[in-house]
Design a protein around this nucleic acid. Structure first.
Lengths: 182, 182, 182, 182
DNA sequence: AATGAATGAGACTTCATTCAT
DNA sequence: CATGAATGAAGTCTCATTCAT
């Protein structure tokens, strides 16, 4: 749908509160009032875009993991690579999930739904990391948060032309797996 | 200054575009118009807050590194710990630096200044990581971006009560130094 | 259009900078924000009103001149009379052209457009005066500026009830044609 | 006084309502609040500047007329020349008298005072024209209004470099005295 | 004389939203 | 499905003015 595509791109690029209904309508080739035929509010539009972002991301990650075989580190690597490819290269919807904080929705109920959707998605990484054999000193929760943080923050600095998203993701996973000391 | 303190807190909590001059003035105990006696625009206020955030963060990190002795990994650990303590616990100004993207300033010139200030700060980590002895397979640039990303993203999930910011930072550094494999 | 009519009347009566969007909206029976559905800015509204003023004035003057026959002084007289009737009696839009200086538009580009529109209109008088047989001592340019100045300044002192605008205009033209000496 | 000089220049250049107390204070090298030590309001400042403009203009015109001898047309010519030189070249105060309409003062009482001051000044021209020998067809009042209108409107188009203000004034007077027909 | 700080009203403008057509 | 027109609240910012120091 042109409307959601436009909203996704703009939310991803400018953030939620800096994006206006006028912007979105204009990018979709309609007038502001017309947006309300399709969505009851700006918040509802965000919710829909966000959900689509989460769903698409989950699909891609799940299928990458399924294709990765049974070795736990390979599965995690595949998930990270799929995550980063989608978020950096392929889906404005997925970008929104990273760029827009749940609190940005000025409606508390919606904020909770966004947070829940994101949590559900991230639970995959809880499982993937739970399957790893870890050293005693390692904390699985912090490992997950470190990895996801490093991946998501790439949106801040990534520019096309250097290392590919998948390569970056694999590098991150390897660094944390083996350490960087000689 | 009450005004900058208020602005820092609100920018950190709600983001730049969701924060209004009314909000800031109210929190500082004055009327919206009065803000403009002190700062010529909302953007200028952001710039000042941001700079103060960078400066304060740099001071704390520099002195932590200086106190850490000469061992490269210890120095990096001290920097990460100081960074995270400041950003999560101690300074609303520093939080702004993480939460607000340079592009949020709707003035291009200011956006550049914000980006430059942040870059100058982050160059410390370039130096600290450059001093490490790394395995051949490790990429110093990606290592820096991974670590800073993981640290900065904590703002998204950190809640007081669990592991301390310093502990989290040290865990991240150790994970990446030694790896988490048994 | 009610909006432009209201703006024309107010700009003519109070000048541009003393007229507020609130004034205009109120006179047109709408709220301030609604004005912006029709015009992107106060300056754009002025430009439109000014252009309409110039266009209407030009139409009236052109048709009066066409109806005046071929005698050059009669043509000039007809132009002056039409100019003054329109500006004093008939069109708030035309009044704006006299009352508002191009520089009042705080946007330089618009100021230039206003000045250009006015110049184009006044070129008619250049032509009309160029067709007159003048004494050697007479300067056609100063004659034009004197006449237009005298006509336009009437807005400052004219009150309905005395001599009609057309009569005033004819008197001015005759005075300058024959002189007032006995 | 620096303050009045600054106000005169700015009122003359930008008009009354487009000129702010900030502008004036800045041009006089002080802060906005300080203006109120010298003048109780913006309107009062305008009144003072306007009066000074009228007084200075009257002085110059009166002394030019006195120096012009007894011939009525020569006296009128001298008055017109002095008027135009002062208004175009010499006094920002006098410019204000032409540029600012009495109604621009948003205080009705002050508007009346401004109009009265201007009227008192212009009465000179009533006297000067009353002394002329005029053809029967000529209307002394319209002659005065035409001449003053033509003179005052010069502010709209005059640029230094062409004919001098005095020359323009003399040309206007001669045109109307003898007519421009061959 | 002048400043520094603020006020309160109001400036232009933008926003999400509504609704008859 | 979408538009055209408007709303009402709120946005950033400017203004003349005040007043303690």
């Amino acid at each position: 749908m042109a409307l959601m595509d436009a909203a996704a791109r703009l939310f991803a690029d400018q953030g939620y509160s800096a994006t206006t209904i006028r912007d979105i309508a204009g990018a979709a080739g309609m007038l502001p009032g017309s947006v309300y035929y399709h969505f009851p509010s700006k918040t509802a539009l965000l919710l829909e875009v966000y959900r689509e972002g989460v769903a698409g991301l989950a699909r891609r990650v799940d299928s990458a993991v399924a294709a990765a075989g049974g070795e736990p580190w390979a599965r995690l690597e595949a998930a990270a690579a799929a995550h980063l490819e989608t978020v950096l290269d392929q889906s404005a919807y997925a970008k929104v999930m990273i760029r827009v904080l749940p609190d940005d929705a000025d409606d508390g109920a919606v904020a909770k739904e966004l947070a829940a959707a994101r949590d559900e998605y991230e639970s995959r990484f809880r499982t993937l990391i739970g399957a790893l054999a870890l050293a005693d000193r390692a904390d699985a929760r912090l490992l997950r948060l470190m990895l996801l943080g490093a991946l998501n923050w790439t949106q801040t600095w990534y520019r096309a032309g250097g290392a590919s998203p998948a390569a970056i993701a694999r590098d991150f996973v390897k660094s944390v797996k083996q350490g960087v000391s000689p």
